[in-house]
Design a protein around this nucleic acid. Sequence first.
DNA 1: ATAGGGCACACCAACGTTAA
DNA 2: TTAACGTTGGTGTGCCCTAT
Length: 401
Amino acid sequence: MSASPGQRHVDASPSNEAVLPVLEWMVRHADIKQASLRSILQDLSFKFGGYDFSSRKNWIKEHVLRCLRERMQTASGASGEQPISGGNATAPNASVNRTADPEGPPGVIESATRKRRSNKAKRSQENDDDTATYRESPLRFTGLMAPVMLAPELAAVCGGQDILPRPWIAKQLHAYVREHELRDPSQGMRFRPDAALAKLFPDRDSVSFFEMNKLLEQHIRKESQCAPEEQARIQAWRQEWEAKGLTQRRKIPAKRARVRAGRQHLKEKALGASFSPLSGGSQSTQDSHRSSTPSTGKRKASGLAQPLQVSEALSDICGGARILSRCEVVRLLWEYIKKQQLQDPNDRKVIQCDAKLQRVFDGETRVTAFGMNRFLGKHLQPLQRNDEVGRGSQSELDSES
DNA sequence: ATAGGGCACACCAACGTTAA
DNA sequence: TTAACGTTGGTGTGCCCTAT
């Protein structure tokens, strides 16, 4: 709150004579691969108690450039140290060079700087976010990396190997195309099959790398499609390669995004608590219910809502209905427990089983509210086809009662 | 948050090159 | 730097209900 005009750092403007030796020292000792003009400005500002050097940016650039030239000359003359090139090192160098070019179009530097800043800010944001973190984990040969059996004509162009994971097959083919210079010069993403590849892609003058994987399917067999002895070989291959202890760098999922989405979902769920799919809720509420599985709308009835065959013992508790969904069973079960006042008054989580409940709960006299779900599975069986005809479920119960 | 159940769906994994 | 394309299978998550 104390007025900024009184800031010590601004008033205590360091002279160029005082700044120059510090600046030269910084450039001489900077990590060229990491440093940028911006980072140098920041460091300089830090060394001079937070003084803002932006008004002397051009002066600083000139001296940074001079020091860099001297440093490169010294390095190349002394030990043949490599000049600044490639990777991040290009950023400060290029910027300074353009600055020195009197004919360089105005705004180029600012534009480039802005772009770099934008990219840096983006990277910084990503690093700040836990979505951008990685972990090293063992390479497992499952899923996409599951080894498959190659047909002889495919193995022939994969160095004779007849068991490989799909991505490695793609890699081998890319290498083959490169080695044999089969790439279509007019269309970089396509290649012209030679005699060996023609066996894989018959009647094709040209194949795109995108099509390649699809066409390869005809020359690949999954483990499940292989003969027992081939499956044994694949197993051995997997064991052999997993024993090598290869690792991969995996991206950690976007936890923060998921947590945010989850919170949003709960919030919307609370707001739309009175929504009934049958009564036609608002579009937004319906969307929120679909949030986790967006789009399509092809979703079938939930497994929990599917009708099941209820055992006689359980049916006795559920009002005699023999076909109910799990959800309905749980609801009716609790209705019965409350009606019969079977909850332990000292611990409402505990259910004191009467004779009917004991038939369902394996003779247990007491079960917990959570534990009783475990017993239900034995009393609920998938429906036979003909059972589904005339399924009554809750409506059947309603009509009975 | 927790327990039980099954299903649908999204996402991720590797690999290559080019265009934006 | 990222999206584009195509492949398969593992994993994570939400749905749905109920009570504590």
